[in-house]
Nucleic acid binder design. Structure first.
Lengths: 336, 336
DNA sequence: TGTCATTAGTTGAACGTTCAACGTTGCCAA
DNA sequence: TTGGCAACGTTGAACGTTCAACTAATGACA
């Protein structure tokens, strides 16, 4: 391993001078010495040691991307395409700015803190359900925090989210505007404080607007896989009066559409379905799925924008961005 | 920040003793002292500093997950669900074993080496196109390397791959067995040494088996988005004699099916389509897509198995696993 | 001639850990 | 009364870097 000392010896200067050259500190080193040092660095193949650097400077250039999961055996981290598109955008921008990305799933606030302290991380992206416990832990760390899709609003952290509530409201209103009155809601398991809860609340609010009574018996919660979607369909069959269905995730909407078709129920003739997310499959299913669009890549870019500003020490007046949604009309909803 | 020295001071022992307790080195410390130290660690909230640790021990407990991309502005890293499922499996297993995961996209071998050296990484997962240049760089690093879906076969590295060639062969043979003779091939851009090339070669080989001449004019390369798939469909329309189509990615197959439907071409009545990957959408499109199944989660688990064995210093006799594929018959192919 | 500023460096401690090489007891057998 | 040997430690250097504080030489100017 080549160290800064080797470069110093090779060029006949002190390690400090080499360090200064590496960091481009100007006005302290002659042009000739700079040239010599850079040559030697190339020739010997010197690569800075980040451990040493972060040990002495207590800044590591590492940003943590932490996903909080609730169940112990949840291995679905990043199976959701949402995460991949977002992380992809984050990784590339961070890299261009000289930062590194460390990935981690945590189950508790202690785990989170330990993780960040071990590596004296410079920043944190947090996604998943935000529990109160996290609050103090994160504030105590005193590093930039950007929450992604985590429903807590505080000036302490930056927040990148989506108008989940409004989007879901819009979806429901759309069905209502098409003459539907008996509208069900299907969703993967709704956890307190998550995006799915917001979407659920949006659905309820839209019903309330036009005084349609909320009926818990036509709210269907299941996993997202096709088998579970079939169970939802069996439930739906028990409520033949349902004419419209708001589904809080496209992937589930697609599964339900498949299940309905298997049971001889036509979409949109017999039942109208509207999804959420506008993932690529929405336009590929039959009929193409009417859904609520969100830009996941943009979400990642905005999150990293926040992070870079905070890392640069800027104080932001706006610490919150909530992406708006857009209803994409396709063919899975019909006028009653 | 609480250090090992603080714990030492608090309990009246030397830092070394604290270090020994932390590492569970037995026979050197009395039970009482162990108890005291552990108490103090809890009370003061001590968390080991990984930078210091890795500086002195030159082992960082960090594993790099590196994706090699060719084009400069390729921001698609991990948009592919393949990556997410695999990384998810890798992260959780690595975590259980006390390792950390760092993500990175690289464009050159130098970038790769610099990245790994900066953090004196303990291991490397490499995915993407393997160029010859990488070979020496990786060997020089002297750390465990597990290649995922990178087509180079050498005892120096572990290799987790898929029978892409055979899978694609099977897909093509299946169409042939159903009476098809004029069979096109559609794929995202084929790069030398990638999985897509293997799939392309499998297609060609299957044609050769039954002496169907290969025709470059019915090989369609495009991006994976719906717009590009429509272009493929326009091309296909110029070859009305095509009765079957092998598509090297489900997502593209679904896009093409949509494009064909828009053009009044029915699947499978007018043209049979077979995909590759068996991603969740395959069973959700209409008609459900006949495709080649692969287990991406298993791929991640096997990769991390290799890694953990190598990290433990074991010498493996088998350094290569090639997952087999399975043809899933659904409804997008018909008997001619 | 003396003072000050500028340029181009150097020195040495510090960051938090680990690890090889040393202490210091106390006990027991020869 | 010595020697040996566990048991339970301690000491101090080292890992590669940074940073505040210093030096040493040159030149300008009053």
């Amino acid at each position: 391993m080549v160290t800064i000392r080797d470069i110093a010896k090779e060029t006949g200067v002190s390690p400090t001078t080499v360090s200064n050259v590496i960091h481009g500190i100007s006005g302290r080193v002659s042009a000739e010495t700079i040239q010599n040092i850079n040559d030697a660095i190339k020739r010997l193949g010197y690569v800075p040691n980040m451990s040493a650097r972060s040990l002495v400077s207590s800044s590591s250039k590492v940003i943590g991307f932490v996903n909080h999961v609730i169940v112990k055996d949840d291995r679905n981290f990043m199976e959701d395409p949402f995460h991949s598109a977002t992380i992809g955008a984050i990784e590339s921008t961070l890299r261009e700015n000289g930062y590194y990305l460390m990935l981690r799933t945590v189950e508790t606030a202690e785990e989170l803190v330990t993780f960040l302290q071990r590596w004296n991380m410079d920043g944190l992206f947090f996604t998943g359900i935000f529990k109160d416990k996290f609050y103090d832990s994160m504030v105590g760390l005193n590093i930039p925090v950007v929450l992604i899709d985590s429903y807590i609003h505080t000036p302490h952290f930056c927040n990148v989210g989506l108008e989940d509530f409004n989007g879901s409201c819009d979806a429901t209103r759309y069905l209502i505007s098409k003459g539907h009155r008996r509208i069900g809601f299907a969703s993967p398991n709704i956890k307190d404080g998550g995006v799915l809860q917001e979407r659920f609340l949006g659905y309820k609010a839209a019903l309330a607007e036009v005084a349609i009574p909320f009926d818990r018996s036509i709210v269907f919660q299941q996993e997202m896989d096709l088998e579970s979607c079939r169970k939802v369909c069996d439930e739906i069959c028990k409520h033949p009066d349902i004419t419209g269905l708001v589904v809080s995730a496209d992937i589930m909407a697609a599964g339900i559409m498949t299940g309905l078709r298997e049971r001889g129920i036509r979409v949109p003739e017999d039942i109208s379905v509207i999804g959420f997310d506008d993932i690529s499959l929405a336009q590929l299913v039959t009929p193409p799925l009417t859904t609520i669009h969100q830009d996941m890549n943009l979400k990642g870019r905005l999150a990293v924008d926040f992070m870079l500003q905070l890392l640069a020490g800027k104080t932001l007046q706006d610490t919150e961005v909530t992406l708006s949604t857009r209803l994409i009309e396709r063919e899975s909803v019909r006028q009653l």
